[in-house]
Design a protein around this nucleic acid. Structure first.
Lengths: 203, 203
DNA sequence: GGCTTCCGAACGACCGTTTGTTTGGAGAAC
DNA sequence: GTTCTCCAAACAAACGGTCGTTCGGAAGCC
């Protein structure tokens, strides 16, 4: 064979994954052709295959990289020795920071992962579940410790928290008045305290 | 010309828009071919063009239909004569209900609208802004009336509310234990009261 | 007959991928 | 210092297939 497409992680390959992350996030997976990617790197279409196995493999690399980053930050937050409120705040700030620092990969991770083939999707699904489990753990701890209302439904609250966090950077534009950290903090604040003033009777 | 692609809304055409909504939501706009659509309707590829002008036109119809439904429900909620808390609750319940009743169109409205050509995207953007404005209005009213904390940032809170609402049906599966109305209500509850018990000191 | 609806073939363009070959340079051998 | 060998990187061309769209004509129905 003329060229072997090994699984090696060369620096050139990393460049390609990065370029793919940007294109996939802008145009979507199916909206991005290998021609687009080749153009972005100043290459011929076919030359890409000296470094990658397939377009699908490229998608997996981008998505998995995104997942790993969230997991890393999340684990730090859950394993802290602190009040649930503090840990939740830390996780949310980390979440938003990670998402915005790697906006392309995060966008692809959220919007395009469903185009992964079943076996690859399963790997990512497991990591998503693990992450959601972290949020649930914190909420559970908070209820047990009396920091959160005893009547909040754990699974529901966790989903809501992630939902809000995941949509946040759909409207984030770099150069706005608020940085990632500020957004994360306000975000946690609002979720923990709610819109109502403290002590307000329930309506 | 043999076939005129008018702007008429025939019943057959509506069928096509509905089928397109389902396919676009499942496979994405670029991941759906006219062949897929023709198969779903038991037709030949070319036959579709007796009813529609282009694939892009089909996307616009699906997205715009989704937008209109949200606006209709939203307007009912803002224009109510009631406490801001009540109106917010009503808007959120309506939002989730609408989204789930028309899950396909809502999904396309959220995930695929960015593939609209600039002039069509602008029309949808205006409607999105209008909807966001409604949420902002309610939050503003709530602050003015003392129902919400005076220090909540209106634009930020509104975005957060919509963010959470928009991701909610990404994980909604029909036949689960909770229906759309229940989800909407719990959703509003959590956003208004927060995770913390009432009267809890701020940490 | 006129209308709507669809078929079936064709259009040029582009898709992701494979292939054989060329290129430029690094390292060893002389 | 010149040759020779080797290798990774990229090129250019082609593969079979699919893309969205057009169009002439054939049915079916009023």
């Amino acid at each position: 064979m003329a060229q072997t497409a090994e699984i090696t992680r060369s620096p050139r390959r990393a460049e390609m994954v990065r370029a793919a992350a940007r294109l996939f996030s802008e145009r979507g997976y199916h909206g991005t052709s290998m021609q687009h990617l080749a153009d972005a790197l100043g290459l011929q279409r076919g030359s890409l295959y000296a470094h990658i196995g397939s377009k699908q493999e490229l998608l997996f690399d981008v998505v998995d990289e995104g997942a790993e980053r969230f997991l890393e930050r999340g684990e730090k937050a859950v394993s802290m020795t602190a009040l649930a409120v503090v840990r939740l705040r830390r996780l949310l700030v980390g979440h938003v920071e990670t998402a915005i620092e790697h906006l392309d990969a995060a966008t692809v991770f959220l919007n395009e992962w469903r185009y992964l083939a079943p076996d690859l999707a399963a790997i990512v699904q497991e990591k998503r579940d693990r992450y959601e489990g972290m949020v649930r753990k914190i909420v559970e701890d908070g209820i047990a410790a009396g920091e959160f209302r005893p009547d909040v439904e754990v699974r529901f609250a966790a989903r809501l928290v992630l939902s809000a966090g995941n949509w946040t950077y759909a409207w984030f534009r770099p150069g706005g008045e608020l940085g990632p950290t500020e957004i994360g903090e306000r975000f946690a604040e609002l979720l923990i305290r709610g819109l109502q003033p403290p002590g307000e009777a329930r309506r």
